[in-house]
């Protein structure tokens, strides 16, 4: 069977702060190497709700404040479609600013409360204190049901506080995570994954990239999918190198 995935890249011009397109490149290539056809669909202020709902997998990066406001305004128009897709289990990866959007509100350092998409039971506050910056490693046990170390880099001023209905993506092994208290990182809701890890996250954690591809195919073709294995020895070495520096076992 010839599979095809439409990857919706949300606001690449406005929300692609630091290597975010790497996640799209990784998804695209890992499909290509397995002969899964892909189409990258850019979802921006000119796109319709129909464009959005034609996507099988969503990816959203981070942004600067001004850009984030423009996106927030536009996303309001797409809110119900977006929400339905998430509820229906459309897999998605939401990084940093993209992750914060999924919550109820974002409170700026000046104390302004900006309403967000309210698809996930969580909120983010920027206390105006130091940004949380550095290499980070987490155990994404909630997603993979066994110890799975994901590595990346975090750089965020906002602290995200998850509500009761949100499972974190994982437990922080090194670094800060969603906020500086709970030692938890990211959020997991159906097939929606929010996280502060960039690097970009999928480049050194192909297991997460394959998870998203697998779920997207399963939802679209309504069948169990087992992806063909790829040679990830380079990615594995990169992950080991970070783990060694952070002094954790993989």
């Amino acid at each position: 069977m010839n599979y095809k995935l439409t990857i919706g890249w949300l606001y690449p011009k406005l929300m692609s702060t630091y290597g975010d397109r790497g996640n799209v490149i990784v998804l695209q290539k890992r499909c290509e190497w397995r002969k899964i056809e892909t189409e990258i669909k850019i979802i921006d202020t000119l796109s319709t709700n129909k464009d959005l709902s034609s996507c099988d997998l969503l990816m959203m990066g981070g942004a600067q404040d001004t850009q984030q406001e423009i996106v927030a305004k536009d996303l309001k128009k797409k809110k119900s479609t977006f929400k339905k897709m998430i509820e229906d289990g459309t897999p998605g990866l939401y990084i940093c600013g993209g992750f914060q959007y999924l919550g109820r509100y974002y409170k700026t350092a000046q104390g302004n409360k900006l309403p967000q998409l309210e698809v996930l039971d969580m909120y983010t506050e920027n206390p105006g204190r130091e940004r949380l910056i550095g290499n980070i490693a987490i155990d994404a046990q909630n997603l993979f049901e066994k110890r799975t170390v994901l590595v990346g880099f975090e750089n965020h001023g906002g602290r995200t506080i998850p509500g009761d209905n949100i499972k974190p993506l994982g437990r922080v092994l090194r670094g800060f995570g969603s906020n500086d208290i709970s030692k938890e990182e990211g959020a997991l809701y159906k097939n929606t994954i929010g996280t502060y890890l960039h690097g970009p996250i999928l480049s050194k954690n192909p297991v997460l990239a394959d998870y998203l591809i697998e779920k997207a195919l399963e939802l679209k073709y309504k069948t169990d999918i087992t992806l063909e294995m790829l040679d990830d020895s380079l990615e594995e070495k990169a992950r080991m190198a970070i783990a060694k520096r952070l002094q954790i076992a993989i």
Binding site: Y18, G19, R21, I25, I133, N135, F153, H198, S203
Partner: peptide
Amino acid sequence: GLDVSWIWD
């Protein structure tokens, strides 16, 4: 800079 993500840009 501690972050090398920029190489993807």
